[in-house]
Write a protein that binds this DNA or RNA. Structure first.
Lengths: 275, 275
DNA sequence: CCGAATTTGGAATAAATATTCTATTCCGGC
DNA sequence: GCCGGAATAGAATATTTATTCCAAATTCGG
């Protein structure tokens, strides 16, 4: 590679890089200035573009982009791109390995476990913010706000969410019926015209939950389903399927994202009823 | 490329792809199943990884990953990667921006509410990681791991946590008794020598929970209390007081931090029992 | 326990992509 | 308007990366 000796040190972070581009900007010959401008304008796609693609969009030949990379202190485009790529890939470390490490590591270190569950919760919440399906959410709010009684159902690990919703709706003055299967009763006859069902279930879906959902569908009640992706088996079983990805740690999930979504749903329904 | 004729149509969107992977999952030979699993686990970095890198992380040779791509209907890894790359180049899953976008929507809009609860949950989790009292946690784990039966109690908004713990302990093969006050019964006579109590309660503390705690203290059972700071009123009422600060949004809290702590506690107790 | 079919890992090959090189153009000073 | 140095574009090359193919290992059915 040319000019190795009088090339500056390469930026080590995206912030460094931005600074360096800003420094250079304005004191650059025409084509290189174009490179600089385009790099800041199109930074979203740098991680996934080849030099050829990027320079084509910038309206310069690839060699010009290469020269600009050298000017910034990189050995080439690949080195610059690495910065953007690690930024994109940040997050999700490999959970399988971390779990294995934890098991083999200092057994019974509770604080480390807390850290892992905190991390899992954080990632789940980020995922919710990223992947939220706003349209379906709006429709779910609408459907539930028109219901006379909202039937809540969730078994096993979904039960805590149903229980919490029952508390929250109560506080908000909205009538609910919690189907908890107490005593083996399914109370499916409690479903009345004008009601709606909010079911929470994760794969493998519990038979009781699906039974209630099917019953509601049979008498044409609106059904909102809160579940985890990909939910292939549930398509067509409910009008409105809201998926929320939870990052599991070990066998258990933090439920953070599911609860956040459920709370937002409840509060939105209450707001809509009043308005 | 091999087998072009009997290869299915390639998925056209990430949703399609997820569905297809879910379909295949379970009916796959060992190595290909590893590919499938890793593809969903590590989906954040697919856009910026080479086959070599990705398959190394999945623990399979590159050729196996290629075979899996063909199975999904793609002509190769590049075609699969294109799906992820276009997703990255568009929506920029930058958490901060996305959250800002969600919030800036019409006030009271469901998506904006989701953003608020996500933010509250995240802050709570950060707080937990920062303020965790490791010493007390260790002692709590020790106390609970020696119990014959763990009595769980939590009313009102603490009930979901108690319910979840009941599920988790069950899965871990640990005997529990959930005091849910059903039918106005308090079952305080269920407390036996050798048992321990894990109580979850937030200010204002519910009388039923405190009654059970006092009863347990009276017969010298260890009591672990999970509550919110400052917990001044509770000092002296239990041996071990674990505080966890939750950031509320509106009248409701996400419970993220409480659940994370509760889960870690449960898993640590199980680990300690086995060791 | 054997043979057939499937699955696997790795070496060989092909394609894509980055990078350098050089002839040519551009521009400012005399 | 001509000279010298910087800047440029595209062709040539090197490197990385994807993809295929096949021999060896494994699994499965009888």
């Amino acid at each position: 590679m040319p000019d190795t000796q009088n090339r500056p040190k390469p930026p080590l972070s995206l912030a460094d890089l931005r600074d360096r581009i800003a420094d250079l900007s304005g004191k650059l010959p025409r084509v290189l200035q174009q490179c600089a401008d385009h790099l800041v304008a199109d930074h979203d796609s740098i991680a996934v573009s080849t030099v050829a693609e990027l320079s084509a969009r910038a309206g310069v030949p690839p060699s010009a982009m290469m020269r600009f990379c050298h000017l910034l202190g990189f050995s080439g485009y690949s080195e610059l791109q690495r910065l953007y790529r690690t930024a994109v890939a940040r997050g999700l470390p490999d959970y399988a390995t971390r779990l294995a490490n934890l098991k083999s590591g200092p057994a019974g270190h509770p604080a480390a476990l807390v850290a892992e569950f905190v991390e899992a919760g954080r990632l789940s919440l980020e995922g919710l913010a990223r992947d939220l399906d706003e349209t379906t959410l709006d429709q779910a709010v609408k459907a539930l706000s028109q219901a006379a009684v909202i039937h809540l159902v969730g078994y096993r690990r979904a039960l805590p969410v149903a229980v919490y919703l029952s508390y929250v709706f109560e506080k908000l003055g909205i009538a609910t019926f919690l189907h908890d299967g107490l005593g083996g009763l399914d109370h499916r006859s409690a479903l009345r015209p004008g009601d709606a069902v909010l079911a929470i279930t994760f794969a493998p879906y519990s038979a009781e939950t699906l039974a209630l959902v099917d019953r509601a569908r049979a008498i044409a009640l609106p059904v909102v389903l809160l579940t985890d992706p990909p939910a292939t088996a549930l398509r067509g079983r409910a009008d409105l399927v809201l998926t929320v990805g939870e990052v599991d740690f070990g066998a258990f999930r933090s439920l953070s994202a599911t609860i956040a979504l459920a709370l937002a749903l409840a509060v939105a329904v209450a707001a809509r009823r009043e308005g």
